[in-house]
Amino acid sequence: MSTIAVTDAGFKADVLESDKPVLVDFWAEWCGPCKMIAPALEELSDEMADSVTIAKMDIMGNPGVPGEMGVQSIPYLVVFKGGEAVAEMRGAAPKGQLKQWLESVL
């Protein structure tokens, strides 16, 4: 399963009301580090599809949720479980480090 795109309008249904944990990647097209981690997130989305949904939110096209959450730098990764943010990571990291972090919070 590939990453899914999530919008301000769909955030509640796609993330907060999801039956399984959701990792949201807050990103923007102009962000170099965001582009660097994108392939790793796609791979992790396939590898970990049974345990987590990986979603991407473009902060330029969807300013509502990032504004409410106080997103000030990207990439900004947040894991949601049961409608609550339970873990966050700022900045880019290698795939192995991303996977280890994600597994530790699931």
Rank of each mutant, 00 (worst) to 15 (best):
82 G>P: 01
43 E>R: 12
10 G>F: 03
10 G>I: 00
26 F>Q: 08
44 L>N: 01
103 E>I: 03
1 M>N: 10
104 S>T: 08
22 V>M: 02
25 D>N: 10
29 E>R: 07
49 A>W: 08
69 M>S: 09
67 G>F: 10
61 G>E: 09
97 Q>F: 08
98 L>T: 03
78 V>T: 07
20 K>F: 12
95 K>R: 13
52 V>H: 04
88 E>F: 00
90 R>C: 04
59 I>G: 02
48 M>S: 07
19 D>F: 14
99 K>T: 04
54 I>Q: 01
3 T>D: 03
77 L>P: 02
101 W>S: 05
15 V>G: 00
44 L>V: 09
105 V>I: 01
28 A>T: 12
14 D>S: 09
29 E>Y: 03
29 E>S: 09
33 P>W: 13
71 V>D: 11
9 A>T: 11
26 F>H: 00
18 S>V: 01
99 K>M: 04
93 A>P: 00
54 I>V: 10
98 L>G: 05
105 V>L: 00
50 D>I: 05
63 P>V: 04
102 L>W: 09
95 K>W: 15
72 Q>I: 14
64 G>W: 07
106 L>G: 04
65 V>Y: 04
73 S>D: 14
3 T>W: 04
87 A>S: 12
24 V>S: 03
85 A>L: 12
56 K>R: 14
16 L>C: 00
9 A>Y: 01
63 P>D: 09
50 D>S: 10
81 K>M: 02
97 Q>Y: 00
13 A>T: 15
97 Q>K: 15
86 V>R: 13
84 E>F: 12
41 L>V: 12
89 M>E: 09
35 K>G: 02
5 A>G: 08
34 C>H: 11
49 A>H: 10
10 G>L: 11
90 R>Y: 04
42 E>C: 12
5 A>L: 12
98 L>E: 07
52 V>E: 06
62 N>I: 12
87 A>I: 00
98 L>N: 02
43 E>M: 11
58 D>V: 11
31 C>W: 10
92 A>H: 11
69 M>H: 07
4 I>W: 08
68 E>R: 11
75 P>I: 12
99 K>E: 15
1 M>S: 14
21 P>V: 13
56 K>E: 03
12 K>W: 12
92 A>S: 05
61 G>C: 04
19 D>M: 12
38 A>Y: 06
74 I>T: 13
24 V>G: 05
96 G>H: 08
100 Q>H: 13
54 I>T: 01
20 K>R: 15
39 P>K: 00
67 G>N: 15
9 A>V: 08
93 A>M: 01
26 F>T: 06
94 P>G: 05
43 E>W: 08
32 G>C: 04
33 P>K: 05
87 A>Y: 00
94 P>M: 09
99 K>R: 15
72 Q>L: 13
20 K>S: 11
15 V>F: 03
45 S>F: 14
28 A>Q: 11
98 L>V: 08
96 G>P: 08
66 P>H: 05
59 I>D: 02
102 L>C: 13
97 Q>S: 07
15 V>R: 07
66 P>K: 11
98 L>H: 11
8 D>V: 03
52 V>Y: 08
42 E>R: 05
11 F>V: 08
8 D>H: 02
